[in-house]
């Protein structure tokens, strides 16, 4: 069974409904590690060695975060800047992440229909995620389609439960 690392970035977790639930449901799954960045590094001082160690120990990396300004909350960007070092993650000798699976798990306020040509947000979610896609590629990882939950502001409790199950199913299938 593969090991899954959820790199979770949410600056206002106490206000979150969906993400808290999604991640909370995974807390006692044995092959899943949840790495809550904002909880671990409240002062943005990322422990690079520790994070690299986590990456090495896992096979599936999920960047789990709300979609802020078509990208990730700032601490996750800091994580990319600092943890994916040259010589570790990329470059001639940077092969540490080779062959691992990577994807984003994202929640958006806007509905799916707005993320289309002619829609309010004009582009598809996967277009906005190109930097992640290419970063994974540079690190010789296999980048998969994102797991996206749209229109989170209006979700009912039942729908949240359904998404939680779906997320869990996805993770289980990735870990096989």
């Amino acid at each position: 069974m593969k090991k899954v690392l959820i790199i979770y970035a949410h600056p206002t977790e106490h206000k979150s409904r969906v993400n808290k639930h999604l991640v909370g449901a995974l807390s006692d799954v044995r092959n899943v590690t949840v790495n809550n960045l904002y909880e671990r590094y409240p002062d943005f001082y990322i422990d690079v060695k520790y994070e690299q160690g986590l990456l090495l120990k896992h096979d599936v990396i999920i960047w789990h975060h709300p979609f802020y300004w078509y990208s990730a909350p700032s601490l996750l960007k800091e994580w990319f800047d600092l943890v994916l070092e040259h010589g570790f993650a990329y470059g001639r000798e940077g092969n540490a992440l080779e062959g691992k699976i990577a994807l984003n798990c994202i929640t958006t306020g806007g509905s799916e229909s707005t993320y289309e040509t002619g829609g309010l947000n004009r582009f598809r979610v996967s277009d906005f995620l190109l930097p992640f896609d290419q970063s994974a590629n540079l690190c010789k990882m296999k980048y998969l389609e994102p797991f996206v939950i749209h229109g989170v502001h209006l979700l009912s409790d039942k729908e949240i439960m359904e998404y939680t199950t779906k997320y869990r199913t996805l993770i289980d299938s990735l870990a096989k």
């Binding site: 690079v48 070092e85 010589g87 470059g91 001639r92």
Partner: peptide, 11 residues
């Protein structure tokens, strides 16, 4: 270290 560009330049 990650913000250092020395190794990048070297490569």
């Amino acid at each position: 270290c990650a913000w250092d560009t020395d190794s990048l330049i070297e490569e």
